[in-house]
Nucleic acid binder design. Structure first.
Lengths: 251, 251
DNA sequence: TCTATAGAGAGTTCTATAACAGTGAGTGTG
DNA sequence: CACACTCACTGTTATAGAACTCTCTATAGA
């Protein structure tokens, strides 16, 4: 009865197990889950308990329940939860996804004019250019080019960015991030990013441009991310108390 | 037993009742609600049923539950009509832009399956379909199809939506909007929307899907908007204190 | 051939009962 | 006086069982 001695609640364990099975593909998107009564029996719990687990998944939009028909794995997405300064990748990690990062380039070089303007550099100033590809569910989903201002760049340039997020590296270097400003536009996949993302040119993508500022209002990082529309979406929850925004995965 | 003769579920009725009492001030912000066991007894339902009602309110962020302490009415009264529930158009107006609305269609008809599911209608139920085109800077920028649930729809169907926003019309009809959930994906302009927006098919667009809920968690409006990427973008400001999201015009 | 009725199987809501777990005030002891 | 303990009260998580609604299909009847 009741929770398993000091561990997480039974229904949470079941929800986690089902979520894992969905994400691993054991239950494919669009496919029907076994009937609730069957699931409850196989997990050895009551219908009520199982339903509480399903409610968790439903809240996260992993499944869709239809009276009289069945319970189905949601075709696109999943997600939910708020927060402020998390990055796109943290958003996905928090949702239990395995996001892997490959570093496609890392060099200190002269910043192009637009970047220089964004980071308030003098023309000719150099900065760290970091090019990364985010893989998600085994497929490349995001192509991201970040420019980091010096001297911060020199402190973090040798970090292993396949394991450490840029935000974390900044924090380790004593840089406190205060604010970030981001704009997202729709676009078509350009040839350069297409090479990294293995999708046909012209596919719908989201293009995110983000500038991150320190406490003293200095812009430290300029980010340009190309996000595959077939794999990601933006989700917002607006409520009386506030607003939350998350990046969600599309199946 | 079970639902009250064809009407709404017991727990929903209780949730609505409690929500009304909170809204009317019967339970003041910050105040503790009676204990769950007491409430369940006074409503003549099981603890489980009452808790289901409380969960609804908790999802709406109307109450806060604290193990071992009690259930409290969520604090800020000001936040109730906060600007977080602004619509896309209000966002732009606030930024000083002149946005004009044309009504391209308005009819009560049977809701398609997907809409019916979103609004929790029975198949075959009718709803108000409102098709609008948003012009901005003299050019059409957004194509929007909204479905409004009955009976709310009947109260607002004769409003002049070129002058009044859907949200305003809802408020005038006594419908309090509590929450909205939205997903935004990139896409390519489809032929139907292209006709209204005077842009070539295949142009990059943002596709927004939004469901708006009342205080008692009933979905009232389902919105599908196609937004021209050449004219609009999403802007977010993330800071330690919180998050803001606005629709912005591209220039 | 078409219609409508029946029924199986799915999700949903509810009753009734029990035990677990966090909080904080009161009580006792050293 | 300080500390630890107990206990009542809170929300939380389970059990077991029943009856409800919705959907779809198969069968019977017109």
């Amino acid at each position: 009865m009741t929770p398993d001695a000091g561990h997480e609640a039974r229904y949470r364990a079941i929800a986690a197990d089902l979520a894992a099975k969905i994400r691993s593909g054991h239950y494919a998107p669009g496919a029907a889950l076994p009937p609730q009564r069957e699931l409850s029996a196989s997990y050895g719990v009551t219908l009520m308990t199982l339903r509480q687990a399903l409610r968790e998944l439903s809240d996260e939009r992993l499944i869709v329940q239809q009276p009289g028909r069945g319970t189905f794995v949601a075709p696109p997405h999943l997600a939910y939860q708020l927060d402020s300064l998390r990055s796109l990748v943290d958003d996905l990690r928090k949702q239990g996804h395995d996001v892997r990062t490959a570093v496609a380039g890392r060099a200190v070089r002269r910043a192009p004019a637009r970047i220089a303007a964004e980071l308030r550099l003098r023309p000719g100033d150099t900065a760290l250019r970091l090019e990364r590809v985010r893989e998600f569910a085994g497929r490349p989903a995001v192509h991201q080019v970040s420019w980091v201002r010096r001297p911060v760049a020199d402190q973090i340039r040798d970090r292993d960015f396949t394991a450490v997020s840029l935000y974390t590296a900044l924090a380790d270097a004593g840089v406190t991030v205060a604010r970030a400003s981001e704009a997202v536009r729709p676009g078509l996949l350009d040839p350069a990013a297409a090479r990294h993302l293995h999708e046909p040119q012209g596919s719908p993508v989201l293009v995110s441009t983000r500038i991150t500022y320190t406490l003293d209002a200095t812009p430290v990082v300029s980010d340009h991310a190309t996000i595959l529309g077939s794999m990601m979406e933006i989700r917002t929850e607006r409520a009386a108390t506030g607003l939350s925004l998350t990046w969600g995965a599309t199946s």
